[in-house]
Design a protein around this nucleic acid. Structure first.
Lengths: 328, 328
DNA sequence: ATTAGCACTCGTATAATAATAGTGCTAGTA
DNA sequence: TACTAGCACTATTATTATACGAGTGCTAAT
């Protein structure tokens, strides 16, 4: 258990280091604690012993360890009210009645990314949560047409397909069959239903059913299994801990990897969760802060991704504000 | 006018430097020219005098200047046949009958980006070339619906709109009116037509026409004026001339800027064009190689973006191959 | 016209030095 | 017992000196 003063020391170090990424010396925080630097040094080495602080070399100042950040986030950080300025910028987006919710979310995350210099992410519903609402087909020329797939949650995808020697009537028949037979099915089960419920029927009533079946099968099997929207990736380029290209490359590759991004919402805790450093699965110097939201049948995950040395209190306040505003 | 030997020297230097980005010394190319390093040095300083070569410092080897690359591309580079391996990888994409042309293009550019380690770009038709084909509306819940806009070239966009207290019937009336009255209009003129041709009519026949008009007006005014597809931006991160983050930041910001990307197709020359260094408008160390393509009413621009120190012959060969295959 | 030879230049690498900001520890004090 | 002043010690950073080497430009000889 930490003493009261140790908490203060840790808090001061974390907050100072977040402001300015240079190791914190004992002298620089001794005044704030109303005791001498020697005392602070003693406290510092206790904190180092329990693994909350680290040194970059024998005689350097201290830097928070991963556990140090964790302790700060879990016990020391004060719930910060959003500043009026931050609030104002977001409100103008939220109060735009014209925009659909999903657009409001994306817009406000853009605003947040610019305000904070961190990367932001929206993950929509996954494909097993999205139900097929209807499909539409629009012919473009003799051989190609566009298939548009719409889900009950308003997710839209379209795909260009080529059909040689298939008459438009046959296509329309197939579309109607699909809409009548399997609307309401979770997207990721559509392929299966297509095979077992639609294929036998169009086999009987539709010419060129092979070609048509294959085309539609591909449309659904290529359906993106999750809507992902990442805003402000480049913000990483102005963070001091990402000043070497190697590191940037690994981070960017991770951000481009669906598995990694997907894993952000693995645990479906409804509260705000903070993944620090190695917990983030992106890089030891990266922190991910995320929350789920739900409004009617719109649901998904918001995340803010930045350096481990992140303004935790500010970001948490922002995410709370976002969640609150989305959910009503 | 350059002598024969000067051409050889320049060519050797460019090609050697492209392989390995260290300044080229006289000795290293003297054997290939069957003369002494002193002779090469003389030729080199002539080439420097006319601005085709540069030194990084007084006693360094030579590096091609921007003009040097230009001269190489315009006069020295040999039309290279694609290697069998390169060809094979692209053919498997092109020979996929299932895919629509636009998908084939994107897929093959992904392949090219991976093969070359450069960034690739497809620019679709611009909004004044795309004609409105039809719009569709799908209601999602009481207040929101999705408007889907389809152009004659198969470009699809959709937008979520919110309409309070507007009945579905009124919406459908409006949609029908729009489809009947202004289908066939270039997308970037739709907003105007909407105002002068549709607004007066729905004003008479449709309730809540204000709200409806505004909503559709926004749908079209937000229409992306150009389909842009950039693949493999991260490839820049493994190019040695982009090893500092500052540079990466400026390049990435440029690549994210619609104006810059749009400017690639400013000149509508149908042949392959090479923009070297400052000509690229992206960075002095960047080269853009592009060509237009056209197949039926599908047209657009392909570009490959990489370091100035690019494998020009290989890239040009690939673009030629792409253009040829797309156009038939 | 070409080339061998040599003085010269400049970048890179290595080592030596000093300055500085920090630590840990000891001994003394409230 | 808890704190602190003081000091020896350590590692980083910046600066300077030195040597090395790859390359050039020029001159004189072929």
């Amino acid at each position: 258990m930490l003493t009261d003063r140790q908490c203060k020391v840790l808090k001061l170090i974390v907050e100072k280091y977040i402001k300015d990424p240079i190791p914190v010396g004992s002298k620089s925080i001794s005044k704030a604690l109303k005791c001498s630097s020697a005392t602070v040094r003693n406290e510092m080495s206790s904190l180092e012993e329990v693994g909350l602080l680290e040194k970059t070399h024998t005689s350097s100042g201290r830097v928070p360890s991963e556990d140090g950040y964790r302790y700060y986030v879990d016990h020391l950080m004060e719930a910060k009210k959003m500043t009026g300025e931050d609030m104002l910028k977001l409100q103008t987006v939220f109060h735009n009645q014209q925009l659909a919710l999903s657009d409001v979310i994306v817009k406000s995350l853009q605003v947040i990314s610019d305000m904070t210099n961190y990367t932001t992410v929206v993950l929509g519903s996954t494909s097993h949560e999205n139900l097929l609402k209807q499909i539409e087909v629009v012919p473009i020329d003799d051989v190609s047409m566009i298939v548009i797939v719409i889900t009950d949650r308003g997710h839209v995808e379209h795909k260009n397909i080529r059909l040689l020697d298939v008459s438009l009537d046959e296509v329309k028949k197939t579309v109607n069959l699909i809409n009548n037979l399997i609307a309401g099915t979770p997207i990721d089960e559509v392929s299966a239903k297509l095979e077992y419920e639609v294929k036998p029927i169009i086999g009987k009533y539709v010419k060129q059913h092979e070609q048509l079946y294959n085309a539609f099968y591909h449309v659904f099997s290529d359906f993106t299994n999750q809507e992902v929207n990442i805003v402000g990736k480049n913000k990483f380029l102005s963070q001091p801990e990402f000043s070497n290209v190697e590191k940037i490359r690994t981070v960017f590759n991770k951000l481009d990897s669906p598995e990694i991004i997907h894993s952000i919402e693995e645990d479906d805790d409804n509260n705000i969760k903070v993944y620090i450093g190695s917990e983030s699965k992106i890089d030891d110097d990266v922190t991910v802060i995320k929350t789920r939201f739900k409004n009617g049948n719109q649901e998904g995950t918001l995340a803010i991704i930045g350096p481990k040395r992140m303004e935790y209190d500010r970001v948490v306040a922002m995410l709370e504000y976002m969640k609150e505003n989305i959910e009503r």
